[in-house]
Amino acid sequence: MTDLKVRVDKKKLERTAYVLKCVAHPVRISIIDLLEQQDQLTVSQLQEVLQIEQSLLSHHLTNMRDKGLVETRRQGKNVFYFLTDSSISNIIDCIKGCKPVQ
């Protein structure tokens, strides 16, 4: 039993827990999935796919931006959202690989 050790450093574990807390909502996971498929999307484009109220979507995007998961880029009248770290999209791969609990 003495060969057991934590294989991930403490800072990385803390960052991972922080990110997982932020994305622990179906809408936020869906936003990550959409931004993985398309490098950047506007609120209107996200809203069209997600079919939720603009105010609710904005709330989720603001939370994700405040936590550093997404950033924005303005182009004319449009504000585009994009993932700050493409490795966050690995969450989608993990979800796809999970077997449903029966």
Rank of each mutant, 00 (worst) to 15 (best):
R73H: 09
L50Y: 07
T42G: 09
L41V: 09
F82V: 01
N63K: 13
L41P: 01
K11Y: 09
L34H: 09
Y81W: 15
K77C: 00
S30T: 00
V27A: 00
L83N: 01
L13R: 14
D66E: 14
N63F: 10
T84C: 13
Q47P: 02
S44Y: 08
R65F: 04
L50V: 06
C98W: 07
V49A: 03
K21Q: 14
K21W: 06
F80P: 00
L69M: 05
Q37K: 15
Q38K: 02
D9I: 07
R73I: 11
D39F: 01
D93I: 06
D33V: 01
K11R: 04
V70R: 03
I31F: 05
M64D: 01
M64S: 11
I91L: 15
L20N: 02
Q45V: 00
C94P: 01
I95R: 14
I88L: 14
T16P: 01
M64Y: 06
V101G: 03
T42I: 03
V43L: 14
S58N: 15
P100D: 12
I31C: 00
V19K: 01
R7S: 09
E53K: 15
G97F: 06
S87E: 05
T84I: 03
T16E: 12
H59T: 14
L20G: 02
N90S: 15
E14M: 12
V101T: 10
G76L: 07
P100C: 02
K77G: 00
E71R: 11
Y18G: 02
